[in-house]
């Protein structure tokens, strides 16, 4: 049996919950010896994971957003979970059109990243962040592509040099 998480947040999967999760994460990060740059990346990655739940998990219906934060010797593992219909493409809620940049950002900003889930069983994004870094994870997993003509992120497009 796995150890219980140190912190579990359970909130409605609504836009207003995302900032509350970020604030809770800030408070927890303050209590741990994180580099400032890691805290910034962690807030961004967790925001993107929570936003994915709000936008995609429940097709506009009410649902739950759960966030576990588990501190260990070398860092913090954060799991963002929904009880939605699982991983498959769904239309975004119309008022919050998705750019499609969430998962590439999570991959670039976290030291480790895992996506779990299957059809009908919800989705979990599990991210790990070490307290200090000797390298930038964005160098290993850079965000590929740029925005396409349709306004969505196109991973195969070539970004302009600048």
């Amino acid at each position: 049996m796995t150890a219980p998480p140190e912190v579990r947040l359970s909130m409605p999967a609504r836009p207003e919950s995302v900032g509350v999760v970020r604030q809770a994460l800030s408070g927890i990060a303050d209590a741990l010896a994180f580099d400032e740059a890691v805290v910034s990346d962690m807030k961004m990655a967790v925001t993107e994971a929570c936003t994915n739940v709000v936008v995609h998990a429940y097709g506009g219906e009410d649902g739950k957003l759960e966030v576990d934060m588990l501190a260990a010797e070398h860092g913090l593992t954060i799991a963002v979970r929904d009880e939605g219909t699982g991983i498959h493409p769904r239309p975004a809620i119309q008022k919050t059109p998705a750019l499609g940049l969430g998962l590439p950002l999570i991959a670039a900003l976290s030291d480790n990243f895992e996506l779990r889930g299957s059809h009908g069983e919800g989705t979990e994004v599990r991210m790990s962040f070490t307290y200090t870094r000797d390298h930038d994870p964005a160098d290993e997993n850079p965000v590929q592509g740029t925005v396409g003509a349709d306004g969505k992120w196109d991973p195969s497009a070539t970004p302009p040099v600048g």
Partner: peptide
């Protein structure tokens, strides 16, 4: 702020937006 600079840098959107 890092919370602004970082996302602009890693998405390469500085010259795009610009």
């Amino acid at each position: 702020e890092p919370g602004v600079r970082r996302i602009l840098d890693i998405t390469g959107l500085v010259p795009v937006l610009p």
